[in-house]
């Protein structure tokens, strides 16, 4: 059966739209699989997402329940990763914290990628005044250092996960718009776009169905590579007390509140630090692998 599916996927003469599409995806996967580091990155990302999703099943304790008698315990059979300064189980808090941290990252990407794509494609394709206007707005956002703008925004609103997401999203979209615009400028002048224009399709249709899909690969790569910096910004905001608010577990916030114990009970801040490190590294490896496979300029 496995052989039959492989042949079906690799067929030179697909018999249906679906087969052609899946065949292409399979080819990409084959190319991706040849890069062990990228596969490792993907594996780590998937494991982390799975752990975060399955947090209620895997957690050994309630992440919010304090037990001051057991504070700052080293890892043991009862507390796999020890306990924090309020005696909460670190393992359980890591799992729930993953939900918050990774959830923030996903939320930011879901907000930012389509926004950047649309702004960039429209600016690049339509050109003229629209382009100038959209790009100047982009420049305004780009001119602020990311963390500072996020800080100002969160400070103006009430600190919390939602405002942190919006703040990071506000500062993260301009690079995608720039990237998408640059890609669009080259795509706009190709003959295949001229050919679609010759069908009489509306600009909107051309952007959505023909231009944007060509920008997607490089955007995907860029987003994946940026995930780590989004994680770090989220953690940074948490660390500064402007992201997730206690008692919500979030990796950055966890480091912030445990930083006092770094010399005596070093594992308390180091464990969430390692998680942030691993997640950033995994996304970077994944992004590098994706670039090799998806970016047309590499072919």
């Amino acid at each position: 059966m496995a052989v039959v599916t492989r042949a079906w996927l690799l067929s030179d003469t697909p018999a249906s739209r679906a087969q052609a599409r899946w065949g292409r995806r399979y080819q990409l996967w084959l190319a991706f699989r040849r890069n062990p580091l990228a596969v490792a990155g993907l594996a780590i990302v998937l494991v982390m997402l799975a752990l975060a999703l399955a947090a209620p099943l895997l957690a050994t304790h309630d992440p919010g329940v304090q037990s001051l008698a057991d504070r700052l315990q080293p890892p043991s059979a009862a507390h796999w990763m020890g306990t924090d300064e309020l005696g909460r189980d670190t393992w359980s808090r890591m799992l729930y914290g993953g939900r918050v941290t990774l959830g923030m990252v996903v939320a930011v990407v879901v907000l930012v990628a389509p926004l950047g794509l649309i702004v960039g494609c429209v600016a690049g394709y339509v050109g003229g005044i629209t382009d100038k206007l959209l790009m100047r707005v982009t420049d305004v956002f780009l001119a602020f250092p990311r963390l500072i703008l996020a800080l100002a925004f969160v400070a103006a609103m009430k600190p919390g996960v939602e405002s942190a997401i919006i703040a990071i999203a506000l500062t993260a979209w301009p690079p995608y718009a720039r990237l998408a615009r640059a890609e669009t400028l080259t795509i706009r002048n190709t003959d295949y776009v001229a050919a679609v224009q010759m069908t009489g399709a509306s600009p909107w249709r051309i952007i959505c169905r023909h231009v944007a899909p060509m920008c997607l690969p490089s955007l995907t790569v860029r987003v994946t590579l940026d995930m780590s910096s989004i994680i770090l910004t989220a953690a940074g905001l948490g660390f500064l007390g402007l992201g997730a608010q206690p008692p919500i577990p979030e990796w950055g916030t966890m480091i912030a509140s445990a930083r006092r114990f770094i010399l005596e009970q070093w594992w308390v801040p180091v464990i969430p630090g390692l998680a942030i490190f691993a997640a950033s590294l995994a996304f970077n490896l994944l992004g590098d692998g994706l670039r090799d496979v998806l970016d047309p300029k590499q072919r």
Binding site: R17, R21, D191, Y192, A194, A195, P213, M214
Partner: peptide, 13 residues
């Protein structure tokens, strides 16, 4: 168009 390589969308069947 002249260039049959460039006038067909590379990601469309």
């Amino acid at each position: 168009f002249q260039d049959p390589y460039g006038s067909l969308h590379p990601r469309q069947t």
